[in-house]
Amino acid sequence: MGEALAAIDLSASFGTHKVLHHVSLQMPANCVTAIIGPPGSGKSTFIRCLNRLHETVPRATMSGTVLLGDEDVYRMDAITARQKIGMVFAQPNPFPTMSIFENVAMGIQLRDGKRQTYLSEEVERALVIANLWSEVKDRLKESSSKLSAGQQQRLCIARALALQPAVLLMDEPASVLDPFSTLRIEELIDELKDRYTIVIVTHNLQQAARVADRTAFFLAGEMIEQGTTTELFTTPNDKRTEDYVTGRFG
């Protein structure tokens, strides 16, 4: 089951350039929370702070608190944090030198060592949840680069799910996919929210409206407004949110 995630007074910088200013946001368990906003509004940086990926970038700094359930993510080991809070990126990025099986097994092998008897079952479980098992079950040893872009993205989702995370972060997961693959990813998000807490960054307002239970609007590194998706899209409190969701800018 998913766990609630909360960001409290989160700020982030790259060197002297501050990109996120004191953001606080609750992301309830087993809900899809969408982060929307124009380019450069700090959406991606925000979710990269949630699983401590931000700190892998040279000269990147952050302050504030991230809570997973009751646990402070920044007080636990960074590797454990990333295993509990999985992430899928905009660009499908399966490891090209590895097979489909190896890609999904990679996280488990890094965590538990290479020779695990349960590896095959775990890989199958992750691929089934990611709706990819039926398409790849006979070609698990083939290179992952032979899959289509949509399949590669679902493989990346399976790779993240293999570690059984509580939260799944998705940074514009369908931005480079065709409409059919996008639909499949959106259907998958809908299925996954029963098991995981999902935070999705998207620049596609229609997509946010389709998949998200809650939505937060970011602008210039600040969180302007948050609420249920219906509220935010139909009766926004802030003029800037209204301008953005009605297409007056962005």
Partner: peptide, 20 residues
Amino acid sequence: HYREAAYAIGANKKQVIFHI
């Protein structure tokens, strides 16, 4: 992004170098 993908599944720097 390949390095990021490895970090995101809990790899440390040494593992990113040797496995990816």
